[in-house]
Design a protein around this nucleic acid. Structure first.
Length: 248
DNA sequence: CCATTAAATTCAA
DNA sequence: TTGAATTTAATGG
């Protein structure tokens, strides 16, 4: 389904512009730009354009650096035993992709695919490492990001092991809702039911049936890929015994 | 899990 | 812009 011959060399590199002219205030690098005075790595960065559905990190590929999302949304996944895709997270602009392989790991343990046309900033590992060492504030911001990711990931383990399928689907809906918000009553991120299933750790059919049930109960509205949550509070209540909510 | 149908999206002529 | 081809949603076995 996905091209498996993508390498850095054949990804399109679009006009590189400097971080100082970037207006993405969410970006960790942009936030610390003032402090990153002798940051040579900013010059090394490549900005790539990635088409919808294109995979830009292959599982098992060697780690050379990491990506920041400049624009667009991305799904990060891991392939399980039976070839099933487990979606680890959805990421939007300003977020970091591929950070797990950053320290000691040699190969990516995850894959990443653009959900929409996306622009990605790519920084080489070596130059980034250098500036992390020299820049405590930057390193601290990165650490917060890692801590947050770890927290979310631990909660996800719990949700998969202890919640019912229906609860996991609801949890997924709420996660998308609080992370991507809604636009005119619909979740501001179009996902296939397959993708909901891959995130919730269930099957496409289960998701479809639970959506139908929720629709009948008047808790959500659904027209194709557009899902609207009618009453966030009722859904929250249903899974409240499991949850401490996360902000990412 | 698989098969069927309906419906929607993509793509190229 | 249209319609044929492919993909996705929904339901029942």
């Amino acid at each position: 389904m996905y091209p498996n011959n993508i390498s850095l060399s054949n990804r399109k590199i679009i006009s590189d512009f400097s971080c100082s002219s970037c207006d993405n205030e969410e970006c960790l690098i942009k936030k610390n730009l003032g402090k990153l005075s002798d940051a040579t790595f900013i010059e090394d960065k490549k900005t790539l354009k990635c088409k919808k559905g294109q995979q830009f990190i292959m599982e098992g590929a060697p780690v050379n650096g990491l990506f920041f999302i400049l624009e667009g949304t991305v799904k990060v996944f891991r392939t399980g035993i039976n070839g099933r895709e487990q979606i680890v997270r959805f990421a939007k602009e300003g977020e970091i992709i591929g950070h797990r392989g950053f320290g000691t790991e040699e190969y990516y343990s995850i894959g990443a695919i653009a959900l929409q046309d996306a622009k990605l900033c790519y920084f080489s590992k070596d130059s980034l490492q250098e500036s992390l060492i020299q820049n405590p504030k930057f390193a601290y911001d990165m650490m917060l990001f890692y801590a947050n990711e770890l927290n979310r990931s631990e909660s996800k383990v719990k949700s998969i092991s202890q919640m019912t399928v229906r609860e996991r689907v609801i949890d997924t809906l709420l996660y998308i809702h609080r992370k991507f918000g809604d636009l005119r009553g619909f979740l501001n991120l179009p996902l296939s039911r397959r993708e909901y299933a891959d995130y919730a750790g269930t099957t496409e059919e289960q998701v479809i049936r639970i959506f139908s049930a929720l629709k009948k109960e008047g808790l959500i509205v659904a027209q194709q890929k557009k899902i609207g949550i009618s009453d966030v509070q009722v859904l929250k209540n249903e899974i409240s015994e499991h949850n401490y909510f996360l902000d990412t």
